[in-house]
Amino acid sequence: MHSLERLLVDGDELFNGFFEWFAGQYDPGSGGFYYARSSRTAEEFTPDIESTAQAMNIMERCGLQHSWTDSDKQQVISFFQSKQDPRWGFFYDDHPLMRHDDVMVGRALGYSLGALRKLGTSPLYPLPVDRHAAPDYCRSPEAYASWLRSVSLANSWRGCDRLCNSAPHLQQMAPAERGPYLTEAMSYFAEKQDAVTGLWGEGTPYVRISGTFKLLTFYHRFHIPLPRPREIYDSLLQALRYEEAVDMCYIRNPISLLSAMGLSLPAAELYEIADHTLQNMQRLKREDGGFSRELDHSPPAPNVAQVKPGEYYPDMPAAVPLGKGEVEGDMNAGTQAVLIRYSLRQLGGLADTHLSQSQHKFF
């Protein structure tokens, strides 16, 4: 067996117990999924939009989408449809602070629409752009250009997250209307990209790589190639070698960038990347079978980007807790771990086999 394939087959052992944990996050009463074990056992938390959409992604990626009965599918359809605000068309979780974080609102819109589309249905009510409830920056390309430049990139991760969460609103526009907005975005992104590193914004290497990954989602949504892929590759290789990955996002984002850029990688470097990645994932595996987003614990509010203790950056969002923040697995990390596993096989040109641990019925 090829050495890379042997490494990745051995790495599949990281998922022992994972699918038992995963099944335990499902709430058959609502059709949704909880974020973590502490979310399920504490009365103040309920299944949330992101965790449920991420769980659907896990099921689809692992070939489990057929394990849901028609009744199960209708439950999850009802879950997402019940989250839509009839007045404004956005999708909201129960926590009131969620409505004040444009990143969470934009992401919930994209997650909900994607999930309903996969389930073969649609929202119950008109979407924000159809009832003029889209953000103010959508009123004109000039307003959008002004908004783009107002977003701070002092923390690349948070800033680029805000920038790319304008994409769902642009996507709802007719192509002819969208064109000038995309022109403004591409012009601004080109202006702000570091010509040496290929990265955007400020922060530690992993923070900047994470911000770059966020912008990647914008480029991909509109089928636009990510610029300076070779410089980005050199930057992420340096980070893998010399920086500590204290967050699952720091492990997943380089792999997703590599997958998206489609570079031809030397075999030795690909093996090195896979080896570093699996070792980093091992540090985030928990006794309950899941993976934590962060090295010390599962973050109670995963919408807040990783910062150093006491650090502040402009536009820092209010924390929207989804769990207690214990040393436990969480859905955010779980969906990333699964994606990493399949992406590494794809990067190595290996067969897209499913995890053996997943091949039985859970629901």
Rank of each mutant, 00 (worst) to 15 (best):
Q54I: 00
T41A: 05
F363Q: 04
H132F: 11
T335N: 13
G348V: 06
A134M: 11
Q171S: 12
V196C: 05
L4T: 14
G198M: 04
M316D: 00
L278Y: 05
P205G: 06
T204D: 11
M331W: 06
G11W: 01
P309T: 08
V246M: 05
Q25I: 01
F79T: 02
L14A: 03
N280A: 15
R241I: 00
A333K: 04
D85I: 09
L322H: 12
H223S: 15
G17E: 05
V207A: 06
D94V: 14
Q65D: 11
R221M: 15
L347K: 12
R345Q: 14
F363C: 12
P123K: 07
Q84W: 05
E177T: 14
L153N: 09
Y312H: 14
I232N: 04
T121E: 06
A351V: 10
A190L: 09
L284Q: 07
Q65N: 12
S71Q: 15
L240K: 02
Y342F: 09
F79Y: 06
R286G: 00
F15G: 06
P180N: 13
G63V: 02
C249Q: 09
A53K: 00
G114W: 04
H360I: 01
H2R: 14
L199F: 00
D275R: 12
R6E: 14
G289S: 07
P141K: 06
G290R: 11
D10F: 03
S3C: 05
M248F: 06
F218N: 06
Q74L: 14
P321D: 09
A55L: 07
W88L: 10
A42P: 00
R131I: 15
V76W: 08
F45R: 02
K73H: 08
E287H: 07
N165Y: 12
E202V: 00
Y26V: 03
D72P: 06
E20T: 11
Y219E: 08
E272C: 11
